[in-house]
Design a binder for these strands. Structure first.
Lengths: 238, 238
DNA sequence: CGAGCCGTTGAGTTCATTCAAACAGGGTGG
DNA sequence: CCACCCTGTTTGAATGAACTCAACGGCTCG
């Protein structure tokens, strides 16, 4: 659990914002002084709902998963956080939720909710920065809802690959090193691990992607991956 | 299609924020002057992606649905907007999206994205208000992702009922008048209409809810509805 | 080497979907 | 008043897809 798990793990310094974003929260800014920075290796808990306060989280380097444990014991990952991504849980008092590192050497800034809210009214720059981070979180959640709304497992996995590729590689290339395990993908897409695995091999066999090791993905046919992965269902709903 | 659609529709003035929120955007405030207010009846389009600008939307009275049309023609509803709810699409350039009224006499304020962003740095009060609206949108999207993450259709429908009940009735009662049709529920939960209908009748037959007309729902057994609707799966995931 | 985790593949079952039909309610017009 | 249409909702039957259970290979680490 400690050392390198996969020799092909990506270097954790890669920049991964959705749009370009200012470099908020320098350690000596007002926002930065509010934060508690936590360093963790893969699989270790960064924060959980048993902590006394509610927090918002921002990944500094590495990657993290924000999840909720459902009443039936399953784990739903609500967000995958790459550097500069921001996330806060809202209205989940009854549930257990938490943030784990998914790569080694991950650093996360934790902002106490109340104090962060109190700062909003004081400083327009802070409010603006927080707004933009919140919009970034909203954008990722919209993407997740859209992916979860897909019908077939192949479509979900395909949309996941395209989305995560956009965030990790910023659209510069067709190759991707996944920061997530199959289990994390499954918990993110609400699929079983087996189905994720089967979908990936099927996408490979259809020539839409190619795999070089479990985490090295190359997009071969972007259009087919984006548009119609279901065999055939052309008619609209409603 | 014109007059009152359901005589039992709740008065549209009911307050429906997730947490208590200030009354932003009075028509004569800076934020209010930015807005274009649109009035629509049930089923009419409020705004769409063919419009020249990107907008953020806030429901003043009535109810609305924010949706995206997927490449396969299906419609995914990303948010149901009740009074004072705020929503903006992010990063869906390739897709068709829109906002429709789902009750008669619905009014929606449309804020042009660029101008709204420009205001953020100027006025801390505006930035704070926009922040809180964005957090509200984030909270609803998290709830949606959590609901979509459920396995069975019964669980999805049950979670939907509890969530929408919380938002419409604010937890004061066990009775609810749904603002949505079965079709809207289906597009929100990514289910077929038939499955939504079947799930509701099954929940009724199990004694978890009771139905008086298609839109009158009463929660009978809140705990069972919340916790385990699947027949039997006690073991934890992971 | 054995233990443990991750990933893949196979076989059988469950469950949501599609296709199809029927019913209820509102509205209109003969 | 009744026939008719249209929308929304419900129910039935059959198909198909993802799930569970199970097993195996690869890899790391102790």
């Amino acid at each position: 659990m400690k050392g390198r798990m996969h020799p092909d793990q990506p270097p954790v310094t890669r920049y991964a914002g959705q749009q370009q974003r200012p470099n908020y929260a320098h350690p000596n800014s007002r926002l930065g002084r509010l934060a508690t920075v936590i360093h963790r290796d893969r699989g270790e808990e960064i924060h959980g709902s048993e902590c006394s306060d509610d927090y918002w989280y921002r990944v500094i380097c590495g990657a993290a998963r924000c999840y909720i444990v459902l009443p039936d014991g399953r784990r739903q990952i609500l967000d995958l956080l790459l550097p500069d991504d921001f996330f806060g849980f809202s209205g989940f008092e009854g549930y257990f939720y938490g943030v784990d590192a998914i790569t080694d050497n991950t650093s996360v800034a934790c902002y106490p909710r109340g104090e962060l809210l109190a700062l909003l009214g004081d400083d327009p720059a802070i409010a603006r920065a927080v707004c933009e981070m919140a919009f970034g979180a909203t954008a990722r959640l919209q993407q997740l809802a859209l992916i979860l709304g897909r019908i077939t497992a192949r479509e979900k996995v395909g949309a996941f690959l395209l989305t995560i590729m956009q965030r990790v590689e910023r659209g510069n290339t067709d190759r991707l090193v996944l920061p997530t395990s199959r289990y994390d993908i499954a918990d993110y897409l609400t699929l079983s691990v087996e189905t994720v695995s089967r979908s990936l091999t099927e996408l490979k066999q259809r020539g839409l992607i190619s795999l070089a090791g479990p985490r090295h993905v190359q997009i071969v046919d972007r259009n087919r991956l984006k548009n119609r992965l279901a065999p055939d269902n052309g008619q609209s709903a409603n």
